[in-house]
Design a protein around this nucleic acid. Structure first.
Lengths: 165, 165
DNA sequence: TTGGAATGTCAACAAAGCTGACTTAATATG
DNA sequence: CATATTAAGTCAGCTTTGTTGACATTCCAA
């Protein structure tokens, strides 16, 4: 049967298989964001706030510019989100020591608390999915995801962590 | 080393592994939508139009209600999208024969052309990722995605195709 | 025949993205 | 030192895509 595809096992590359993969990606992403979204809906924040908080948590002291590059949005869009987070006391924006033009971003205790609440929910689903699928499936999952990213982003994603103040 | 995790290989469930999976999902989804988004940006359509066209193409004759359930948006939101697609001659909305309240949705030739253009771009990236990762990785990828979906949606997704007119 | 379901429409609004123009401060460079 | 560039922030206005709520129409089914 695989012979019809050119002598190799390329059945996983039929249009039908690809379509199923596309839909699985669509539905899974909905599940992926569902739990944090439910939490965020009870407060004055949205998915954009979650993303900002997540990446500040991962790289404390990251600059606004770093965040812009990671998130891939305009500074006006990010600024609106960061402003509310700073005003609400969830994010601390400190002028850089070496370069005073830069602002280094940190989560406050309240910010850490929100981050934990959101990522606990998201991790719980991820953990359940990983556990259900098993370690080998997870390795494959990661491989396909990595191959699906924009090459430039994959480099950054597996490159240097920007967390030096 | 795995023994620290409870005697099994559960290292893939550490918070750090989960965080990496979460970020991979985020970046990969960006790649996943990047190509269709670039095409859509050149016309008066957005991601919502792509989704509608995709699922009408998959299940020709599907009803508005079916589409609402699959897409998980409000009818007002979907209606705005469908209206422009019908006005622009990409989608044909036919009154149901059995139940005249229902509208059955079909792509016109122009609609099929747009769908093909968008999904060709998306499939090309998917195909490249699948090819790079290999069949076993793809099987794992699908397993994890399926486990990540909302259970109710997973049932529908693997249930009956709604394409009877 | 009447109640409820499916669909559609109007209005108003919110989140989160965008562009463009501009300021301020600080750094880097010629 | 003078100038150019960079980082960050702000204002204004726009777009897409989601949301509620209210209401009309059509039509099936009890």
């Amino acid at each position: 049967m695989a012979e019809f595809q050119g002598g190799e096992n390329l059945l996983f590359l039929t249009d039908e298989q690809l379509r199923q993969g596309i839909e699985a990606m669509f539905f899974a992403y909905r599940g992926f964001t569902a739990d944090p979204d439910r939490i965020l809906a009870t407060m004055a924040y949205g998915r954009a706030h979650h993303r900002a908080v997540h990446f500040i948590s991962r790289s404390p002291g990251t600059t606004v510019n770093n965040l812009l590059n990671i998130l891939g949005v305009t500074k006006q869009s990010l600024n609106r989100v960061l402003r509310t987070l700073v005003e609400d006391g969830l994010v601390d924006s400190r002028v850089g020591k070496a370069d005073k033009r830069e602002r280094h971003l940190f989560l406050t205790d309240a910010g850490e608390a929100l981050e934990r609440k959101l990522s606990d929910a998201q991790r719980a689903r991820m953990r359940a999915a990983y556990r259900a699928a098993g370690p080998e499936a997870v390795a494959g999952f990661r491989q396909v995801l990595e191959a699906m990213m924009e090459p430039e982003l994959r480099r950054r994603y597996y490159g240097i962590r920007e967390n030096e103040v």
